[in-house]
Design a protein around this nucleic acid. Structure first.
Lengths: 338, 338
DNA sequence: TTCGGGAGCTATACCGGTTTATCAAACCCT
DNA sequence: AGGGTTTGATAAACCGGTATAGCTCCCGAA
């Protein structure tokens, strides 16, 4: 028989639909013997719940959503999202919950998607990435009463659940390492200042500079694109007293920066040390391979999924989980200054 | 009122649920005046259909699925999927159909997912990528009677719908260009031979070689990884009569190959020309920037979505759409041989 | 004048589950 | 023995839509 329903099972087992439902969901109301029998029959008929029917009855759809608001152009290169997605899925698959993915242009469109998802009951909860300062999505989600977990930033005063790594600490690790190598002119090519993690990294550099005796430690913001990464590097390397080390907020920008250094005849790591915040195959493909701050992005995603399920099950909970600290993977692009 | 139902609308409009359903779905059964009134009220109460309820009644879920069976590690770097996804979504959004995405390890797991999706009625159809020779997924999908469209390969004798570009022609374009530059020793670093498009590209090279008077034109297969791309390049460049041009089946391998050339002191494009099949920001980040075959991946995805919707609406249709031909973007990595 | 037929709408069954009210039988305790 | 609780099950309502049978009214043709 194709696509059996619980009514079919009930009939074959000689019990009511309700009994079958109880048995299949492991809740009290049937004896162990009956339960066993029903389960065997269900297995035998290879029954699987009809997701829509279950959603309608139980008012949960066993599906969560994730919206990525970035232009597609910059998306693909970064392994970040692919790893994150895999991790999220591994966290969800145990409960066989599915994932809806949407790529949109900006935060406004993203909120619109949440609004639609909520009103159409398409997802039980959502995962947020790229948290900005005073992020409008937080209020929107609270208004929609849609369970959510924030990746890579504290949930804010409103206490959305969150999963985060210590960006500040990671940045301090980088700068301290460079200072220990003897660098005194360190520049920081940052991402857009609207992201919370960008702000945290900039603050970390600024705070550490005097303590480490750095002559200067400017943080220059960009839009995360390779083009601006290259342009900013060009500007930095054209200065009279150019920096001897540059920290980039993404691997793509670091690679672009390396290209500029080569083009300008600045040897890496001889005349310039380069560190990338965020690791990937990109950094390893380069010559010299780039020293990079590696995060376990997969695990990041997995934990986010776990936390989200927790929040969905218990909407009150203010979970706030800190993941493993990023580690600095030293490769060939860093050395003491000439 | 939170989350109004059509019953609420019916009450306020003073009509029956059925009338509201007719009006909202634009089908006959109500007068224009009544329809207008109902639509206004629905708008006013900001009603949105409950996806599960609609799915249960209409037995379609307004959702399609896409499974990517590749290790996550190799996934992120290639912008291919990100662009493809964006395109798919743009094709779906018009009908406000949502997309389920799943990344799995292998084809076996992928079929398992289809099986689950079909039995749980989670998707109306699926999009297939990375078609292999004698692909097991095709039979599985036909058995499940799940509408599907194949990206990048003919649907096979079984006649799944498909969207494809002319790989053979694209490869011929590359080889002819290199031959025109004067190259006679051209090597082809291919992907895994299990993929149909790999086979087509290999055949294209083999067929063109005698006509173009190439001395040799070996196609060496790899697993698409940067590691094997590099290793194969190393082997090629160590030969006594090394090739003067190498065509890579992916941008990642081309970049890895460029790295090997630099490491071995082989100048590009002086001693070696490099062409990447598939374009992305990667190829542009390099020095020299790589000549590459560019496909409109976004459009690819968009068309796949359109075709899938067509097939869902009309399961009999054997749609077979050919997309715009790829074009060769010449950059700095190709030149006449020394 | 009557009948057929379409337009416009209602009432109701239905999709496939979950949940609740109800009930009979068994068990438990003094 | 009798009243109260627990166990195991059923029947029916319900979730929010869609689909359909049927009813009423009105119009035009025979």
């Amino acid at each position: 028989m194709a696509r059996p329903t619980i009514a079919d099972i009930a009939q074959r087992a000689g019990v009511s639909k309700g009994a079958v439902s109880f048995a299949l969901n492991g809740r009290p109301g049937v004896s162990d013997a009956t339960r066993e029998r029903i389960l065997r029959i269900a297995e035998d008929m290879s029954w699987r719940p009809h997701s829509a029917a279950r959603a309608l009855g139980a008012s949960r759809v066993d599906s969560v959503g994730m919206v990525i608001a970035r232009p597609a152009r910059t998306l693909g290169v970064e392994p970040f999202f692919a790893h994150l997605l895999s991790g999220v899925q591994s966290g969800l698959s145990a409960e066989s919950i599915s994932l809806q993915l949407l790529i949109v242009e900006d935060a406004e469109a993203e909120v619109e998607v949440y609004r639609r998802w909520a009103s159409e009951h398409r997802v039980d909860g959502v995962i947020l990435v790229d948290l900005t300062v005073r992020d409008p999505r937080i209020d929107a989600l609270k208004e929609l009463e849609l369970p959510a977990v924030v990746i890579g930033g504290r949930g804010g005063k409103g206490a959305l659940a969150s999963v985060w790594a210590d960006d500040r600490d990671a940045m301090l690790t980088i700068v301290e390492y460079l200072a220990a190598l003897g660098h005194r002119r360190i520049a920081h090519v940052a991402g857009t200042p609207i992201f919370q993690h960008t702000q945290r990294r900039i603050r970390a550099v600024r705070d550490a500079a005097p303590r480490l005796g750095l002559l200067e430690a400017p943080s220059l913001t960009t839009d995360f694109s390779d083009a601006e990464g290259a342009a900013t590097t060009r500007r930095l390397l054209s200065q009279a007293d150019r920096p001897t080390a540059i920290v980039y907020d993404s691997d793509v920008m670091a690679v672009a920066g390396l290209g500029v250094a080569m083009e300008m005849g600045v040897s890496v790591p001889g005349d310039l040390s380069i560190v990338a915040f965020d690791d990937s195959i990109l950094t390893q493909l380069m010559h010299p391979a780039l020293t990079a701050m590696s995060r376990d992005t997969f695990d990041f995603g997995r934990q986010a999924a776990e936390v989200l399920l927790e929040v969905i099950a218990n909407p009150g909970a203010a979970v706030n989980r800190r993941t493993a600290d990023p580690v600095l993977t030293v490769r060939e692009s860093t050395a003491p200054p000439a």
